[in-house]
Design a protein around this nucleic acid. Structure first.
Lengths: 257, 257
DNA sequence: CTTGACCATGACGTAACGTCATAGCTCATT
DNA sequence: AATGAGCTATGACGTTACGTCATGGTCAAG
C-alpha cells in the first residue's frame, strides 16, 4: 500500500502548498493556465497532485520573469523550452545592465548632492548620458534599420555562449588561414574555399536577411567612425579584406564583406 | 540682443527635444505632472523653454526608475530628493539581486538541459530554492511581524552607506569599551554610560518602535537557530551581553538587548 | 441557529503609456 | 475653392498579474 496522502485539495491548502495566493489560482484558472481537475458539487475548485506539479512549474517559470502567456505555451509544448530560456537569459542580462546604469547614476547624483546643496539637473543629465555612452555595447545599432535591429535582437537572444565562442574561434581560424594564403591566386580553389568559409560565417550572422546584410555593409563602410575601443577588436586587416574581396569577386558572389 | 530662439513649441517638436512621445506629453498633462504654459486658440498645447527644463528633469528621474507620482511630488518639493534617491538606490539594488538570482537559475537550468534532454522540474525547483537560500541576506525577517518588516524596510532605505559604516564602528567601539570594563560594578556610572550608549544604538535601529523591538528580542532569543555563517558576525559574547543586561537592570531600563 | 472560516463570481484599480477612432486645423498644391 | 498631407485634440480601450473589495453561498462546530 502506498501512503495514501490526500489526493484533492481545496483552494486555500493548494495555494499554500506552492506559496501562491488563492486569487492567483483564480487568475490562472481564468486564463486557462491551470484548471483544477474537477469541481465539487458546490462549485469549489478541487486540485490534484498532478495540478500541484503543474503549478510548481508555473511558479518556477514565473520566477524567471516569464510572462504567463509564454508559460502557458511552454507547458503545452515544452520543446521550445531551451530557446525560451536562451531568450529570457538575454532579456534579463539587458535589464540588469539598465539597472546598473541607474544605480551608478544615483550614486553619482548622491555624491554631487553632498557637495552642492541644491540639485544640479544639468549635471544629472550629463551623468546619465555619460553612463549610457560608457557601456555602448550597441554602438553598432545605428547602422541598421529599425526592422533589421529587431531581427538581430531576435537572433542574438538565441545565441548560446558556446555558439558565440565557437563562432569567434572559427573567425580567428579563418583569419589565420587567410593570412597564410595571401600569396595565392584569388581564383584558386584554395582561395575559393576560404571565401566559402567567410560567406558561411557572415551568413550565420545575417541569417540571409538582406536588411541585416545592408546594415553590416554600411557599418563596414564607416570604419573610420567606429569608437576607438572597438577598432582593435573588430577591424580586419586590409590585406585580408582585399584578398577576400578579390576571391569573392572571382567566385562571382555579391556579398560585400 | 540675445539670440531669440523659439520660445514656444508645439507638441511634436517639444516631444522630440526631450526624446519622448506626444502621447507621453498628453499623459503628463493629464496627470498634472507637466502642464503646458498655455494653449493656443485652437486648443493646441504650447510649451515653453521652462517646460522643457521640467520635462528633462522628469525624464532623468524616470530613467532612475521612479514612478511618475513620486516625480510629481519631487518636482513640487525638491527637499526630499536626497531621501528619495537613497530609497530608490536601495530598491534598485534589491531588484538587481533578484535579477541575478534568475539569471543564475537559468544558467543552471540550461546546463542541466544540455545533459538530460527532458526538463527536470524537480531539479529546477531545487536550483531556485538553493539560490534563494544562498543569498539569504534577510534571514532575520522571520523574526519580525509583517508590520515591523515594512517599517524596517522603510528605515533601511534611508541608511546611507556612511551611516551604516559609522554605526557598525560605534558598535565595535562599544564592544571594545565594555570588554575593558567587565570588572566594573554594573551600577557604576561608567557601566551606566556604556548601557546608555547601547540603548542609543539599539534605538537607532528600532527607531523606538515596539514592534521592531519585539522582533529583535525574538531574534535574539533564538540565537541557537541562526544560520551558521551569521553566528560569527552577529553573536555577542555572553560576558558582554550579561554585563549589559545587569547594567540595564541596575539602571532601570526594560530594553532587553 | 449562529458564528467563523472558506468558497465562488464579478468588477474595479494599478503604471505608463500604445494604439486606434473620431474630428478639427493649417499649409501648400491643384 | 477644393483637396490632401501632416499636425493637433479628446476619449476610450488594451496591456500585466494579480490585489482588493463587494456580494452571496457552503460547511462544520457550538
Amino acid at each position: 500500500m502506498k501512503p495514501k496522502t490526500q489526493t484533492v485539495y481545496h483552494a486555500r491548502q493548494f495555494a499554500e502548498l506552492a506559496g501562491v495566493t488563492v486569487r492567483a489560482l483564480h487568475h490562472y484558472d481564468h486564463l486557462g493556465l491551470l484548471k483544477p481537475l474537477h469541481r465539487s458539487a458546490n462549485g469549489y475548485r478541487l486540485y490534484s497532485d498532478a495540478d500541484l506539479a503543474r503549478l510548481e512549474q508555473i511558479v518556477v517559470l514565473k520566477s524567471l520573469g516569464l510572462p504567463l502567456k509564454q508559460i502557458h505555451g511552454l507547458l503545452n509544448d515544452k520543446s521550445t523550452l531551451r530557446q525560451t530560456l536562451r531568450r529570457q537569459h538575454h532579456v534579463l542580462l539587458e535589464k540588469r545592465g539598465q539597472l546598473e546604469n541607474a544605480i551608478r547614476a544615483i550614486e553619482n547624483a548622491e555624491k554631487s548632492l553632498k557637495s552642492k546643496r541644491a540639485p544640479d539637473w544639468e549635471f544629472f543629465k550629463q551623468i546619465l548620458k555619460e553612463i549610457e555612452m560608457q557601456n555602448e555595447t550597441d554602438w553598432t545599432t545605428k547602422y541598421y534599420s529599425k526592422d533589421a535591429q529587431a531581427k538581430i535582437e531576435e537572433r542574438k537572444a538565441l545565441w548560446s555562449p558556446e555558439m558565440q565562442e565557437k563562432v569567434s574561434k572559427e573567425w580567428a581560424e579563418l583569419f589565420a588561414d587567410i593570412e597564410g594564403s595571401l600569396g595565392e591566386n584569388p581564383a584558386s580553389p584554395k582561395a575559393q574555399t576560404l571565401a566559402g568559409r567567410w560567406r558561411k560565417l557572415v551568413h550565420g550572422f545575417t541569417g540571409g536577411d538582406p536588411e541585416i546584410q545592408k546594415g553590416l555593409n554600411a557599418m563596414y563602410a564607416d570604419q573610420a567612425n567606429w569608437p576607438e575601443k572597438q577598432q582593435e577588436n573588430y577591424q580586419i586587416r586590409p590585406e585580408i579584406h582585399a584578398f577576400i574581396m578579390k576571391a569573392m569577386k572571382a567566385g562571382g558572389s555579391a556579398t560585400k564583406c
